[in-house]
Design a protein around this nucleic acid. Structure first.
Length: 580
DNA sequence: GCCGTTTTCGGCCCGACTGTTTTCAGTCG
């Protein structure tokens, strides 16, 4: 865990304790804000301390800086140690449980002598909690349901899973076409966060339709539990323990509502600050004059931001990580978009561990509207993945040559590629003489995930035939953390050799921070689906979203090159390392 | 705890739903 995340976690915990103790809510909000800023920061906090820039970060004041310095010096924060002594830490884990908040825990602590998580769970089940004032049967039921939910869905969804569920729900809601004006997925899913907590759906419709819309929403086939149902807001839990929320607004409120429910929270707080400074008020219902409450706009997001004198930041970068300042100055960069994408660099067929045939995968890539695709089956040492030996690759090339004849007339190109294993000593699973025969080479690590693998990747980058490092960090979504890595070294060598780094849609690897580092250093990234079935190719737009979260520029995304540009990219490295 | 284009003190985003409450507190996003 990076120092940023470690310190962020401590600030988060301090906020929890302060909340439990009933401290000033604004101080608590500040601690949480500091935690959030630290974890979203794309610079190492130690760097900021060295350069003195830590003192210039809005939202991190003197007192927080002191705590950060203390942590960097002594490895702990005395204020945190002090607070920890005042409350059983394990009890506060329950703050994450839906329907349990600080007041409930505090009451149980004081009136029932509850000292731990298990104490609390026992008190719920034994009915002891029900003896507290204000705790009726329904409240108890909600708490029990919250605990059940919490235990089941501790893990957030991957972006792809959330998108699938959201899409299915959207299709279902569209049965009400005649009642609904607009409908869209909002929240962290719209921001294309790599993991999503729950799914937010926003609908605009005339008020008289709202009751019917919410009725329809909670009647979805996969619904296990209706958490709440109102005229503007409903919330359900699906059989798979995933939560979906619906909000309805009137058509003229659409933009303000979409802006609000897209978030992030940090972004919105800043935007509302800006509104206030202009004598305006921003809510999910529109932009208003602060003094008269007169509605002055909000039917589209563009209108909302324009009224605040800003460009509209793309949803993916609304994290209060610099986008607001640039939007105010009218200087937002143009990010890569799905329309820019001309090909996919990493797909598998049933020659190795894919389930689609070569023909199916290629046809699907062609139907995506691409100009080219790289077929990249595993090399031999990936035995579980049915890796190919040299002879099998040669057989596959014959097939590709045959198919290329068909597709040439359509202006579509199939590149002979491979995903060659980077072996434990950093050498590759195929000899250079064979690698030289491929059109495009992806090199990836598939073994020894717990050791520092920097040396293996550096060695692979030095190979003149390696064009792309596959899933460089070994991370998979939020779940598998990835091996320790000196990303700065890797990025510098990638820059100096003309090697690209892969943003893998299925694993959400690289992170947005890494993408920003690549952009700053002028290193190409390639957005790939790592498709193992024809249906996977369509997730490219989610990969593009992940790249946009890292402020990816089209000129440094390899997929924006046409076939000629890709061939030049490959040739350039071979020339640079003097092998042609 | 943070911050300053009416401020170095006095504010801090704002609204929905539920439950037990007869006017509001707790929780959530």
């Amino acid at each position: 865990m990076s120092k940023n995340k470690e310190i962020a976690r401590i600030f988060e915990k301090m906020a929890d304790i302060l909340e439990f103790l009933g401290d000033n809510p604004y101080r608590i909000a500040t601690y949480r804000r500091v935690a959030n800023i630290l974890s979203e920061l794309n610079v190492d906090v130690e760097e900021l301390v060295k350069s003195g820039k830590i003192y210039n970060i809005p939202g991190i004041g003197q007192s927080s800086v002191e705590k950060i310095l203390e942590y960097l010096k002594k490895g702990k924060i005395s204020k945190y140690e002090e607070l920890k002594a005042k409350v059983p830490e394990d009890l506060l884990e329950l703050m994450d449980v839906p329907n349990i908040g600080p007041k409930t825990l505090r009451l149980a602590y004081e009136k029932l002598g509850i000292r731990s998580k298990d104490d609390f769970l026992r008190a719920v089940r034994s009915g002891m909690l029900a003896t507290l004032p204000g705790f009726g049967e329904k409240k108890l039921q909600n708490i029990m349901r919250g605990i059940e939910l919490w235990e089941k869905s501790k893990e957030r969804m991957t972006l792809i899973e959330a998108f699938e569920i959201g899409q299915e729900y959207l299709d279902y809601m569209k049965h009400l076409e005649n009642l609904i004006e607009k409908i869209e997925l909002a929240g962290s899913l719209r921001r294309r966060k790599e993991t999503v907590g729950d799914i937010d759906i926003l609908v605009s419709a005339p008020r008289q339709n709202w009751v019917k819309i919410h009725e329809h929403f909670v009647s979805f086939n996969g619904v296990k539990d209706v958490l709440l149902k109102g005229e503007t807001k409903s919330s359900v839990v699906l059989e798979n323990a995933r939560q979906v929320d619906l909000r309805t607004v009137e058509p003229h409120q659409w933009g303000a509502a979409l802006q609000y429910f897209t978030g992030s929270k940090e972004h919105n707080i800043r935007v509302r600050d800006i509104a206030k400074a202009k004598g305006l008020k921003l809510s999910e219902y529109g932009v208003f004059k602060a003094d008269t409450d007169q509605w002055i706009g909000g039917s589209s997001e563009e209108e909302v931001y324009a009224l605040l004198g800003m460009q509209t930041p793309p949803p993916e970068i609304r994290e209060n990580a610099g986008e607001i300042e640039l939007a105010l100055e009218g200087k937002l960069p143009k990010l890569v978009s799905f329309q820019d994408i001309k090909g996919d660099f990493h797909i598998h067929t049933n020659w190795s561990d894919g389930i689609g045939t070569l023909e199916e995968m290629i046809e699907t890539a062609y139907r995506m509207g691409y100009e080219y695709v790289v077929v990249g089956d595993h090399s031999l040492s990936s035995r579980v993945a049915k890796g190919l030996d040299v002879e099998r690759y040669r057989q596959q090339w014959k097939e590709i040559d045959r198919l290329q004849k068909e597709y040439s007339s359509k202006g579509f190109y199939i590149l002979k590629g491979c995903e060659v294993d980077i072996l434990p000593d950093g050498s590759l699973d195929l000899p250079d003489s064979v690698l030289a025969e491929f059109d495009f080479v992806v090199a990836s690590i598939h073994t020894r995930f717990s050791q520092d693998n920097t040396y293996r990747i550096l060695k692979a980058i030095e190979n003149p035939y390696v064009n792309l490092i596959g899933h460089p960090t070994g991370k998979s979504y939020g779940s598998r953390q990835g091996y320790p890595l000196d990303m700065e070294k890797i990025i510098k060598l990638a820059r100096d050799t003309g090697t690209a780094l892969e943003l893998n849609t299925f694993r959400a690897d690289l992170s947005p921070e890494h993408v920003r580092m690549c952009m700053a250093e002028g290193v190409y990234i390639a957005i790939v689906t790592d498709a193992h079935a024809p249906a996977h190719l369509k997730y490219m737009h989610l990969g593009v979203g992940l790249a946009r979260r890292g402020w990816a520029l089209p000129e440094l995304v390899l997929n924006t090159k046409d076939i000629k540009g890709v061939k030049e990219f490959v040739l350039k490295k071979r020339k640079l390392l003097a092998v042609v």
